[in-house]
């Protein structure tokens, strides 16, 4: 049995529908119409200990519903869930000692007081012993480079610093699983890189299983190769990021800089995007022709000075993927 095992998970919501206008506002007070939305529709997956998994999907796809069920906040309608040997909802109080949660938009630190005070409070919430607390805290402080921030009130921290403190706060009780919901939202480029590095380190050093959601595909790409994609509550894809790329990026873009070309070769399976000044940019459909064959065709007719293979932007691929499933 896997460390996290989710089988045929379902969750429906009743959503009240209401027209606009004062008349409808009064109407809806008396009688409401409901629409049933399948937020999570027969989702199954397995995650092994120590994995980092990216859980992605467009807004309203059912990501946070799934996360909430995994955290024991929401009860599923049907299906089975086992996380680290617990049923998250039934064993909630025992189970949540084993998880750490960072909701990107919601801080668990006290805004007006130094970081360390929030840590102390979490210590007593989780009933962490002094010894263990000091050990974990020192480790995390070193790992997340928080030495100089501990006595600063949270409101004076930069967003990146605050996110680091958030992550440390969620790890004080030594959880085995870490849920990260949009951990890099709003961060600048440098802080993003830092946060990613820390997540990786924590995963490696502490063997923490990490499940993260993000709209920033570069996050996912930097952190993990395993992604689960959901849309309209259904699981659309579960596998490697490279797999998605293969499946949805129909081609590679090739930039060739050459000399002495007389006749542009016509190659089946390629499309010229840009031409001129001893340079050509083409899209290559790798199902039809391999990159090396294209290059070979060019070497036959000219001298090649430089070749660049441009991978399609991961964001574009995801957009294609969503489009492919009509999201």
């Amino acid at each position: 049995m896997s460390y996290i095992s989710v089988k045929h998970l379902n969750k429906e919501f009743k959503v009240a529908q209401r027209g606009s206008g004062l008349k409808n506002a009064f109407k809806s007070l008396i009688k409401r119409k409901y629409k049933i939305i399948k937020a999570v529709d027969d989702i199954s997956f397995d995650i092994e200990k120590g994995e980092i998994v990216g859980y992605i999907g467009p807004n309203g796809a059912g990501k946070s519903t799934t996360i909430k069920m995994l955290c024991g906040i929401l009860k599923s309608d049907s299906g089975a869930m086992k996380v680290a040997g617990f049923d998250p909802f039934k064993d909630r109080v025992k189970y949540v000692k084993n998880i750490g949660v960072v909701f990107g938009q919601k801080s668990q630190l006290w805004w007006d007081i130094p970081v360390i005070d929030s840590f102390e409070l979490l210590k007593s919430i989780y009933k962490i012993s002094d010894e263990e607390y000091n050990k974990t805290k020192d480790e995390l402080v070193k790992l997340l480079e928080l030495e100089n921030l501990l006595s600063t009130p949270v409101r004076q921290l930069s967003l990146g610093q605050r996110m680091r403190a958030e992550i440390a706060a969620s790890l004080l009780h030594n959880p085995k699983i870490l849920f990260l919901d949009e951990p890099t939202i709003g961060l600048d480029a440098v802080s993003k890189l830092e946060v990613r590095r820390f997540i990786k380190e924590i995963n490696r050093k502490r063997q923490v299983t990490v499940i993260l959601t993000s709209h920033d595909m570069t996050d996912i790409e930097a952190l993990t190769n395993r992604v689960i994609v959901i849309g309209h509550g259904k699981k659309l894809y579960d596998g490697t990021l490279t797999g998605i790329k293969k499946k949805f990026s129909s081609g590679r873009r090739l930039e060739i800089i050459y000399r002495d070309l007389v006749n542009e070769p016509v190659i089946k399976g390629t499309k010229i995007i840009e031409k001129g000044n001893n340079k050509v940019v083409l899209d290559v459909n790798i199902d039809e022709i391999s990159i090396s064959s294209v290059i070979k065709k060019y070497t036959d007719v000219c001298d090649i000075e430089d070749v660049n293979i441009i991978n399609e932007d991961i964001d574009n691929i995801i957009v294609k993927l969503y489009k492919g499933y009509d999201l």
Binding site: G72, V96, I99, F103, K106, Q108, I125, Y126
Partner: peptide, 18 residues
């Protein structure tokens, strides 16, 4: 509204106390 309740629910303590 601001999601704090969710945060309280992922902690192993009595909800009234929290």
């Amino acid at each position: 509204v601001n999601g704090s309740l969710d945060l309280l629910l992922v902690r192993p303590r009595n909800i009234y106390l929290q």
